[in-house]
Write a protein that binds this DNA or RNA. Structure first.
Lengths: 252, 252
DNA sequence: GGCATAGTTGAATCCATATTCAACTACAAA
DNA sequence: TTTGTAGTTGAATATGGATTCAACTATGCC
């Protein structure tokens, strides 16, 4: 966590900047995006950013009070792009759950594939700075609620409360979160060798989410990269009366 | 990330410590466990630990070269306890997948419930220090491989490679990881109000994992807390020929 | 050109923490 | 009781950044 000291002479307000100033401010932001992606938030220093921007160290504080403020501004912009749920859901039929799930996962895969460092930085900042954590949570929540808000009506017999639905939504969100972190952020070499395209990755993850949610495979027509997964399923769809009967599923 | 400076006069080797020394070393470890749980790794300072232990600041370096070393020693011990997979799998029948999944999740839930801070600290340290990241990955991998190693044989028709199975295992691991983080580490207030016991939480998560893996509900006999989830499933088990047909699942 | 203002520089300073160490204390063996 | 050694203390010092600021430069306007 970049140390933040107390003194603070506030930077020049953006509105009072001339065009040269605005340009420099942008240069710093671009540099920061780059450093953030390379080193992550908790390793970033002011010197990293000014060096990357090709600018004297002291200039930083003319434009930003500290690294955290800059980072929040930056990541906020990324989130705004990503979180355009209207765009994500465009063209998805109301009952087309396979399509909906998949089209929520696709941009997330792309984001991890394209700027893994930024995703990591987001998590670091959220871990260290509660207000941003809240912001990030809201961001996810908005996404998750598109799913969880439907659940009670989708499965009336289960009598799910809104909160129970939320728990399920968080859990399902973890499916792609974990896989994408392992593949793109930690760059697990085995997973890299799979050479999945982002599309295929999205197919596989959407498949798992769909199955966890519906206890069934998605409609077979449009599975694309994930069709092979249809064969991943219990051998005996109707096991006997007690748990032991599932022993049949074993190999050998 | 606690700063680690260069100089370093190495601490007294454990073997040369008298009984008083060993006791103090333990006291520091206990204190560190406590601070770690309270503040996490990246906020912890040497002063925190010595203060908690009720000991002069300088004494720390007689026993440990730096915070990271101490933390690794500590978390390694926690992992050793947790990773006793022999114990976890004891008494589980070979084909009893519901039992196996559930009994892997239970200790993880307990760990989150009991010492959420330590789990968080593990992630922070792994994020900041690659060697520990490798160690942690190995730890999970051991667990995951109990699952992924079986998959190719479990679903021969899917022709899963070992790596593809691993991807699935990571993804499934994310289910409980995300839910437990949200509930116990971030202390999401809505989820807390659910008042799930660790047992119930484990039941729900195991249920979702089982479904994602087998595209079916687990055998009905032993679901305990999660029985209600059986009703969470697609209304039309055999949708028509193309994707659109799943529209039936919609409310209204 | 002369002037005013915005923008830039980097050496000086500040700060929170880590790390050392010389002096001190507690204990145990002789 | 003496004395040697392990253990402890906390003030002094070292570090790696962040932050400031007085001097400097570029730009645009008259």
């Amino acid at each position: 966590m970049p140390r933040i000291h107390r003194r603070k002479r506030s930077p020049v307000h953006s509105a009072r900047l001339g065009s040269r100033g605005r340009a420099t401010r942008e240069r710093l932001k671009t540099a920061a995006r780059c450093v953030l992606d390379r080193k992550g938030y908790s390793q970033m220093t002011v010197a990293d950013v000014t060096k990357e921007a090709g600018v004297a160290a002291g200039l930083f504080h003319r434009y930003f009070p500290d690294l955290r403020t800059l980072t929040i501004e930056l990541l906020g912009e990324v989130m705004a792009e990503l979180g355009d749920t209207a765009r994500i859901e465009r063209g998805i039929g109301r009952g087309d759950w396979w399509g909906r799930i998949r089209s929520h996962i696709v941009p997330s895969v792309e984001n991890h594939a394209l700027r893994p460092g930024l995703v990591r930085a987001m998590n670091q900042l959220a871990d260290e700075y509660p207000p941003f954590r809240a912001q990030l949570r809201d961001f996810y929540k908005t996404q998750l609620q598109l799913l969880s808000a439907q659940m009670p009506r989708l499965f009336p017999e289960a009598k799910l409360s809104a909160t129970e639905a939320l728990l399920i939504a968080y859990a399902l969100g973890g499916i792609s979160e974990a896989a994408l972190r392992e593949r793109y952020i930690l760059r697990n070499s085995a997973l890299r060798e799979l050479q999945f395209t982002p599309e295929e990755m999205a197919d596989w993850l959407a498949m798992l989410v769909y199955r966890a949610l519906f206890a069934a495979n998605p409609p077979a027509g449009r599975l694309d990269g994930a069709a092979r997964l249809l064969a991943v399923k219990a051998r005996a769809p109707r096991p006997g009366k007690n748990g032991r009967s599932s022993r049949k599923a074993t190999t050998g």
